[in-house]
């Protein structure tokens, strides 16, 4: 599961969803893998303003990845004068699209429920007593 996805996921429990503590989910015992993908500069440029940057920073720290800058890069930092993608954009592509959680858990910061990730797929089905 690519890291971009984590920005659009929270705890599946109704009682958690509206609490700030449930987002972002916290990776635990995560095995990372790099899944090579063609870079689409426009796609990255479009996603950037939609990201919860604080959540991305938390995520990279918890995964032991290089720290992100305090503020999200501006649009100007993504392409050079000739319109070519900058290293910043390439790094974002690597982080958001290619870096993936192959297996591990995602933990809710509110209820502490752990969702398993197996073969790159996170499973959010709740046991019936938790629904």
């Amino acid at each position: 599961m690519k890291l971009l996805t984590l920005n659009f996921l929270t705890c599946a429990r109704k009682t958690c969803k509206s609490t700030a503590a449930a987002f972002p989910l916290h990776p635990k015992e995560a095995e990372l893998e790099q899944v090579e993908m063609d870079m689409n500069p426009l796609f990255i440029t479009n996603m950037l303003p939609r990201l919860e940057w604080e959540a991305m920073k938390t995520l990279t720290t918890e995964l032991g990845l290089p720290n992100l800058p305090a503020e999200p890069p501006s649009a100007e930092e993504l392409a050079d004068e000739s319109g070519e993608p900058t290293q910043t954009l390439k790094d974002l592509h690597t982080l958001l699209m290619e870096t993936s959680i192959a297996s591990g858990k995602l933990v809710c910061g509110n209820c502490e429920h752990e969702y398993a990730v197996k073969e790159g797929i996170a499973n959010f089905l709740l046991p019936s007593h938790m629904v």
Partner: peptide, 10 residues
């Protein structure tokens, strides 16, 4: 992801 429509993780 695997999820139930009545308990979406979004």
């Amino acid at each position: 992801v695997v999820a139930d429509i009545l308990d979406l993780p979004h």
